[in-house]
């Protein structure tokens, strides 16, 4: 089967951090969908846990005026991705739907890309991933099980995108907004994560991504990587006047 490429699709994500409760539903959903190896105690000890989406928790203030701020973070699918040009073998490249793609077969494991990802979103398979035989039944047949020695990261659930596009081709129509969602977006109970085609001005994601959205910002925007994930600022009505939070 060939992949139709004339789509006018640009897949984007909006993360409204005002809603995130840190519940980790997205994290486990991603692990289930994408055959992410089990993060054992040893793996955590080695600081090698793989979580394509992770919830970063930052402390702010001191007791009793302490806050925990949550940042759901996944590959930002940068429009100008620093991880791409450093890869000697084109194992990571940009496709025409705005995705930063990882070709597992091609990766030789230089970890150059991981160093150059300012968002820390690339994960290396330090060991051969193993599952007890019975647990292998759960593996998603649509997703490659990665070998050791290669890089992996959030794919925006490309297999779900392809499935939706294939269905759309069969039904001779375009993909509808909200017709499918990546696993993390699908799971997120609070609606923190919104996904869609930002080339379609009527999509929910395009509406939320608008440049005049009062809470819009992107991570490390000054680096110019043009992230394809837009964040909406946390709202804290009790934010102290003098706090340095980029609040203006």
């Amino acid at each position: 089967m060939t992949v139709r490429t004339e789509w006018d699709h640009k897949w984007s994500m909006v993360v409204d951090i005002d809603r995130c409760t840190g519940c980790q539903a997205c994290v486990v959903a991603c692990q289930a969908e994408n055959n992410v190896p089990i993060n054992t105690e040893d793996i955590f000890k080695q600081s090698r846990a793989i979580e394509w989406i992770r919830i970063e928790r930052y402390w702010e203030g001191e007791f009793p005026d302490v806050k925990a701020r949550y940042l759901p973070a996944m590959c930002q699918h940068c429009g100008n991705a620093p991880c791409e040009p450093v890869c000697p073998v084109y194992a990571t490249y940009h496709n025409d739907e705005g995705l930063n793609v990882q070709v597992y077969n091609r990766c030789i494991g230089t970890r150059f890309c991981a160093n150059n990802c300012p968002f820390e979103m690339r994960f290396f398979n330090w060991w051969q991933p193993v599952w007890p035989e019975s647990l292998r039944n759960q593996l998603n047949p649509d997703v490659t099980v990665r070998n050791r020695g290669i890089m992996e990261k959030c794919t925006f659930c490309v297999q779900r995108i392809r499935r939706a596009e294939r269905t759309a081709i069969q039904e001779e129509r375009d993909v509808k907004d909200g017709e499918f969602a990546p696993a993390c977006v699908q799971a997120c109970p609070t609606g923190t994560l919104v996904f869609g085609n930002s080339n379609d001005p009527n999509s929910r994601v395009a509406q939320l991504m608008k440049s005049d959205h009062p809470r819009r910002y992107r991570l490390l925007e000054h680096l110019g990587t043009e992230p394809n994930v837009v964040y909406l600022k946390k709202v804290d009505p009790y934010l102290k006047e003098e706090a340095h939070n980029g609040s203006h």
Partner: peptide, 29 residues
């Protein structure tokens, strides 16, 4: 060793480049 996802330094944002931006929300939505 306390095993956790957080790195080996207590995570607090760097003042001049906060990755989580916060607003008081007066400007609406």
């Amino acid at each position: 060793r306390m095993i956790k996802l957080e790195g080996l330094v207590e995570a607090r944002q760097m003042e001049e480049s906060p990755v989580i931006q916060v607003t008081r929300g007066e400007e609406g939505s």
